[in-house]
Design a protein around this nucleic acid. Structure first.
Length: 435
RNA sequence: GGAGAUGUCGCGUAGUUGGUCGAGCGCGCACGAUUGGAAAUCGUGUAUACCCCAAAAGGGUAUCGAGAGUUCGAAUCUCUCCAUCUCCGCCA
């Protein structure tokens, strides 16, 4: 969300930005919001004046009532003043209603006007125009066939999709045995990796209030992603980012405590509305998964440095696990409205002969901070909005797909990279279950 | 889940027969004076958001857990909700 003052003063920049994101249908929103803002301010000004006169008149009543104790004739005078205040009450109520209507519509529009993208973001209409920036590690394709990931898991008796379907429906999974252990090992390693980078480990609430949801994501995302608890003002989180950024709602953050570097674990729940292709079967796209996340809240001038550091952490983690990856930069049209800049870290799939998304690193600028009213009090006493960033550390079971495909050997075994062995009971290799 | 108590400016408190209370006092903090320096002492200041103003200065509005109501006027009265504490119940 942008600052309404910025929109008021720079309508052309805002419109240009909308065009860059190929959202021309939103162009009229800019003029509409500026007009509403002017009306709203006029209403506020008039209402403030009415309230000011009400306050002074009411004080007069108080004084007159006091005097009336000695001089009953003052009572009449007081009644006159009362009537005067009452006369203004109607207009004030009218204005208050207007203010409310304007504010609601302005907020609605502002929520839909996209954040200003970073000048470095490549311009393009959709994900087909995303730009590969750099590859890390050699994308190896072995001689032997790499089966679909659920098949690999099944060879270890490591997954039961049928049972999950019966119990919870499509989009759920049972992980079992070594595969389940591998899942936990990856999370534990990812956690410790981030702790070693100086991040603070957090376990947040897995359900959050509606106003927090609205603060951290756009309305459309909310409808298509979030599960609501029936009869309660609670939503299951889609990522721990929601509770971790929400942690700062309405808070004034001391400047000395910046940057806040946090790494959080949580299960994530997503509706995943809409149809998905055949490559999204298995545990690729599911209603529930677990994720280790990194969150940074920092001074505005430091956010781009953190952005660079954060996606590099993801690369380092995947390289430690001996998985080839690449950095794919999101183009303007594929960038969510709240984001200033974003990239995906994609892992190599030897089966599909292509890279697929395993991490998503985003700089949200001050958009979340403005929505959530999180502010920093500077050394000079002035308030400003911090920048917020988030990035995936590891999100199994999806990342297990990359793991299994890249570590599967010709004999059907799976090698465990050095860094994960302490979390796997020292094992260097997993051997498939006997048929 | 049941019963009771509480919720005021960074912290601690005053304020509950509604009216100079946006709010007193103490602590803390900032600046200044005093001092060779420090402590102590004294003085001054000490919220946030928004509106008006070209800007500054200045003025105004709102905010005493949140929301709604009564009233000319509410920190003070009524209702709803939330949070905290104590006791009971239940439970990983």
């Amino acid at each position: 969300m942008l600052d309404i003052r910025f929109v008021r003063e720079n309508p052309e920049i805002v419109k240009e930005n909308i065009k860059k994101k190929f959202q021309d249908h939103k162009l009229p929103m800019v003029d509409e919001v500026i007009e509403l803002d002017a009306k709203n301010r006029a209403a506020i000004t008039e209402a403030s004046e009415l309230r000011a006169s009400r306050n002074t008149l009411s004080k007069q009543v108080g004084m007159l009532m006091g005097q009336a104790k000695k001089d009953p004739s003052k009572l009449e005078e007081a009644e006159k003043v009362k009537a005067q205040v009452k006369a203004n009450a109607e207009r004030l109520a009218e204005l208050e209603k207007l203010e409310e209507e304007y504010a609601a519509r302005i907020r609605e529009l502002m929520m839909n006007i996209p954040n200003i993208i970073d000048p470095s973001v490549p311009i393009g209409p959709d994900d087909s125009a995303n730009v590969e920036v750099e590859r890390f590690g050699e994308a190896v394709t072995p001689e032997y066939d790499i089966p679909y990931h659920t098949q690999i898991m099944e060879s270890f008796n490591g997954v039961d999709m049928d049972a999950a379907g019966r119990v919870s429906g499509n989009g759920f999974y049972y992980l079992m045995g070594d595969i389940a252990r591998l899942h936990s090992a990856v999370l534990a390693y990812a956690r410790d990796f981030m702790i070693d980078k100086g991040f603070i480990y957090c376990i947040p609430p897995f359900m959050i209030h509606g106003n927090v949801v609205e603060g951290v994501m756009s309305q459309t995302d909310m409808d298509s992603m979030m599960y609501k608890i029936e009869g309660e003002d609670l939503y299951l989180i889609g990522t721990s980012e929601h509770s971790m950024i929400g942690k700062f709602i309405d808070q004034i953050i001391p400047e000395q405590s910046l940057p806040q570097t946090l790494t959080s674990y949580s299960p994530c729940f997503r509706k995943e509305k809409g149809a998905h292709g055949i490559e999204e079967r298995g545990v690729y796209r599911i209603h529930q998964f677990e994720k280790q996340e990194m969150i940074v809240v920092c001074k505005p001038e430091e956010s781009m440095d953190w952005y660079e550091k954060m996606w590099r952490y993801s690369v380092e983690l995947f390289r430690n696990m001996e998985i080839p990856v690449r950095q794919l930069e999101c183009c303007s049209g594929d960038l969510a409205d709240l984001k200033v800049k974003s990239c995906d870290i994609e892992a190599w799939s030897p089966r599909q002969q292509k890279y697929f998304e395993v991490c998503s690193c985003s700089n949200l600028g001050d958009a979340q901070a403005r929505r959530l009213k999180m502010r920093v009090k500077g050394e000079d006493g002035k308030m400003y909005l911090p920048h917020t960033l988030n990035n995936t550390v590891a999100a199994p079971p999806r990342m297990l797909i990359a793991f299994l495909e890249n570590h599967l050997q010709a004999d059907g075994s799976v090698t465990i990279p050095e860094c994960l062995r302490p979390y796997m009971g020292g094992k260097a290799v997993l051997t498939p279950a006997a048929k």
